[in-house]
Amino acid sequence: MNTVCSPRITHSIGVRHARVPQHPIPLLYTDIRPQRISIRPTGRSNQSKASYSSNSRPSIKKERGRLYGRTALITGGSSGIGYAIAERFLAEGASRIVLVGRRREKLQDASKRLSESIIKRINQFGHVNGEIATRAPEEDVSERTTSSGQDVDILVGDISVASEWMTDLEKAMIDVDILINAAGISISNILPRTSPDHISGMLKTNLEGAIYTSRAMLKSCMRARSREKNRKLNDTEQSHQKISKSIINISSLLALKGVTGTVTYAASKAGILGLTRSMAVEAADILKVSNVMLRCNAILPGYIDTPMIQDFSVDKVNELRAQIPLNRFGDPREVADAAVFLSTNGYANNCVLNLDGGLSAV
């Protein structure tokens, strides 16, 4: 279906984007043609009919978290590892999260769940690292007001065809401090039985999409000198002359460990490691005379406990767990822990973190 809608705000125009968790668990990929649509980012406005009422919020004691004031754009952020990272970043005080995905309804549901997660934390602990503010999709972005709250925006776009909406992607990347490349697809099949469409789809989503988002991030950094003059810096940044931004690529254990039936997927994730290394060097070279530095790191998850493993039989799950020295799957929140570390450690560059319970040692 290729229905074209008249855009009301240009920076959130995009084509639909795949929502897939990042781990070496087999999953089917459906080839869906891109569809250009226009949606409004979620958020809060004083002059419109917001779905969120400040009068219903409990009292909040504002505290600065490790990601206070930061903005993160997360591809594949509506579920799995991407969603866990978004939730953890908000808990760490991030002021704005942009979730990128193909399906609008999934993104809206993720935005709602993130809002509920923050409010639950407020009710439980009596404080949170900032406030969360949500806006109804129909609100006019021109009516947005500046606040100390936390925003969850959504950008509908298919990262596998990011080259077709690069202008919109580059606009969305303005003021982004942390890029998380978590979108990807996985197909379990031996190479002779893997269709050309599946091969192309995996390479475009897992590798080419990450290249295009990284390109947009680097271009944004190159243009950031004038934009950063009046930026509010956190305590860590105030002690440095340069603004520290970062890209975190979600690769996979299969980039390093051979497993039958994962040839194309493994190749795409190995390519992510090459992207990480090259970006770490190239960004430093290009931005050396700028007031911005861009670091690039990667996380290599092993088997992560996501809804996708519900499709596995009990015997299959037990077989996989038995291969892992820790005898369990990882939790998406443990991957989010690593993402926070890589986002806040200013000396982490070309850092590759294995999170596989020791499976890579077997």
Results as ranks from 00 to 15, higher is better:
Arg295Leu: 02
Arg225Cys: 10
Leu218Asn: 00
Gln238Arg: 11
Leu207Ser: 00
Ser251Arg: 00
Asn234Lys: 10
Ile304Tyr: 03
Ala266Cys: 09
Ser290Cys: 12
Ser226Tyr: 15
Pro301Val: 04
Ala255Asp: 06
Leu273Glu: 12
Ser214Cys: 14
Ala267Gly: 11
Leu287His: 00
Asn234Met: 13
Ser268Lys: 01
Val289Phe: 12
Leu275Met: 10
Arg277Gly: 01
Pro301Tyr: 05
Ile299Trp: 01
Ala283Ser: 14
Lys204Thr: 01
Ser220Gly: 15
Glu237Ile: 02
Arg223Trp: 06
Lys229Tyr: 06
Gln241Asp: 15
Ile211Tyr: 14
Gly261Tyr: 04
Lys288His: 15
Pro301Ala: 08
Met202Ile: 09
Arg231Gln: 04
Met279Ala: 05
Val259Gly: 04
Ala224Trp: 01
Gly201Leu: 02
Arg231Ala: 05
Arg227Ile: 07
Asn206Leu: 07
Met222Lys: 12
Pro301Met: 10
Thr262Cys: 09
Ser252Lys: 01
Ile247Val: 15
Gly302Thr: 00
Asn234Pro: 09
Leu218Asp: 02
Ile272Lys: 00
Lys219Ile: 12
Lys257Gly: 06
Val292Trp: 02
Leu256Glu: 13
Ser268Gly: 11
Ile286Phe: 08
Lys269Cys: 10
Leu287Arg: 02
Leu253Glu: 01
Ser244Thr: 13
Gly209Tyr: 02
Lys204Asp: 01
Met279Cys: 09
Ile248Asp: 01
Lys288Phe: 13
Glu208Ser: 12
Ala298Gly: 07
Ala266Ser: 12
Val263Lys: 05
Ile243Trp: 03
Gln238Glu: 14
Cys296Val: 03
Leu287Cys: 11
Ser220Ala: 15
Thr264His: 09
Ala283Asn: 01
Lys245Gln: 08
Leu300Cys: 09
Thr264Ile: 15
Arg227Ser: 10
Thr262Ile: 09
Ala283Cys: 13
Ala266Thr: 04
Arg225Pro: 01
Tyr212Trp: 13
Leu218Ala: 03
Ile286Asn: 03
Ala267Met: 14
Ala267Cys: 11
Ser200Arg: 14
Ser239Asn: 11
Leu218Cys: 05
His240Met: 06
Ala270Val: 07
Leu253Lys: 03
Asn234Cys: 14
Leu287Asn: 00
Ile247Cys: 04
Arg227Gln: 10
Val289Glu: 07
Met222Arg: 14
Asn234Phe: 11
Asp235Ile: 12
Ile304Val: 15
Ser200Pro: 08
Met222Gly: 06
Lys219Asn: 13
Thr276His: 03
Lys257Ser: 08
Glu237Lys: 05
Asn291Trp: 04
Val289Asn: 08
Tyr212Ala: 02
Met222Leu: 15
His240Ile: 07
Thr262Val: 12
Ser290Ala: 14
Leu300Gly: 00
Gln238Leu: 14
Thr264Lys: 04
Asn249Ala: 04
Ala210Glu: 00
Ser251Lys: 04
Val259Leu: 12
Ser251His: 07
Lys288Ser: 13
